[in-house]
Amino acid sequence: MKTITVLGSGCAKCTKTAETIQRVAEALKVDVTVIKDSSPQLLLQYGVMQTPAVLIDEQLMHSGSIPHRSEIEQWLLAE
C-alpha cells in the first residue's frame, strides 16, 4: 500500500490536493493512505519551496500546484 503525504501549511490548495488524491485512488480502487503534514522540518528536508508538494513513499513527486488528475493516476498505477 502506498503512503502519500501532502506537504503544506494548511492552505486551501493543500487540502484540495489531498482530497483529489483520495478521490482518484477510490475511483481506481487503489489502496492508499493520504496524510497531510504541515511541519516546516519536512519542507526543509525535501527542499520544497512551493506548496502543495506530494510525497509518495517518501519520494518527492510534485510541488507548487494541485497536481492534474492524469498525473495522480500515473503515480497510483505505477508499481
Binding site: 503544506g8 501549511s9 494548511g10 492552505c11 486551501a12 490548495k13 493543500c14 516546516p40 519542507l43 526543509l44 527542499g47 520544497v48 519551496m49 512551493q50 506548496t51 508538494a53
Partner: peptide
C-alpha cells in the same frame, strides 16, 4: 506569490 508559500520559500532561501 501567495502567503501560504511564505514558509517554504523562507526555508528554501535560508537553507
Amino acid at each position: 506569490f501567495c502567503s501560504c508559500s511564505s514558509i517554504p520559500l523562507f526555508l528554501g532561501f535560508t537553507s
